[in-house]
Design a binder for these strands. Structure first.
Lengths: 143, 143
DNA sequence: CAGGATTAAGACTTTTTAATCTTAAATAGA
DNA sequence: TCTATTTAAGATTAAAAAGTCTTAATCCTG
């Protein structure tokens, strides 16, 4: 499970992504209001992403957050790692510090495939993919 | 990611399981020491499992925790649900309260297969399975 | 160049999770 | 029945995560 940090970050990036492809910047307040996220907290999170180069911002009127083409290609694994800590994905689901094949936790081998699948998916998903997140069969027909 | 609660609980049950098949009871101190878990905290967790019927205990000298045949068949999903809350598995990885196909979070469809696989695995794994957690190829040859 | 709009930074507070401490209750064995 | 051993229960404290507040810096517009 991800912490609130990552949850808000991904939601925010998804929103900023939508606007960025239209060439628009996004104000924190807009994201906070639409997704019901505490604004000051979201600010801090987006600021930290900006500091680390995952996101761009501009102050002042008509300012806001936006993503460059290059930033849209960031793997969300890198973003989660920055927010949750470098070893988020190397730790096992039970959060044992040193869980691996040689010194496994009680469920290491029982869940290793599923764990790896999740890790690989996070590696593959890029910020730009947060845009196309609804499968065709659901967008084409209604109900 | 599971909280410490569940981590300690599964570690503890795994240890108690080992002793239970030999007909032995397990003292909290023994588990705490072997796995480096704060003893008083582990006590509380095991006590709560006992209160809910997932585990058995006996006070006094030669007492300790143990598992009945029936308790060994408990799905660890039920145990995690009790410790982390009923909707642990119905929430998505991003912990959105209401994330489903109709109102998905930004990564709902990107991770739905992997998420479901994990959930099903937790449903299938029983306490008794915590005993046999090392694949044959690793126990047979060394190095 | 003044004023409002916006992000930046960091101190502060609240809430939740993790862990400890204290006292009680049960029970085996001498 | 006394004592040592063990779980039970709940109050308390500590640490971490989540969230708020305040002030500064930037920069567009008139």
């Amino acid at each position: 499970m991800l912490a609130n940090n990552s949850k808000y970050a991904i939601t925010g990036l998804s929103h900023i992504m939508e606007n960025s492809v239209k060439g628009k910047k996004t104000k924190v307040g807009e994201i906070a209001e639409r997704h019901d996220i505490p604004q000051a907290f979201l600010s801090k999170i987006l600021q930290s992403l900006t500091r680390e180069g995952f996101l761009s911002s501009k102050k002042g009127p008509y300012g806001g957050f936006f993503l460059t083409e290059k930033q849209m290609q960031t793997s969300i694994m890198d973003i989660v790692k920055q927010l949750e800590g470098e070893d988020f994905f190397s730790n096992c689901l039970l959060r044992f510090e040193a869980c691996n094949s040689e010194s496994p936790c009680p469920i290491h081998f029982l869940l290793i495939r599923e764990k790896d699948a999740i890790t690989n998916k996070f590696r593959k998903i890029k910020v730009i993919d947060l845009l196309h997140n609804i499968p065709k069969e659901l967008t084409e027909s209604k109900k």
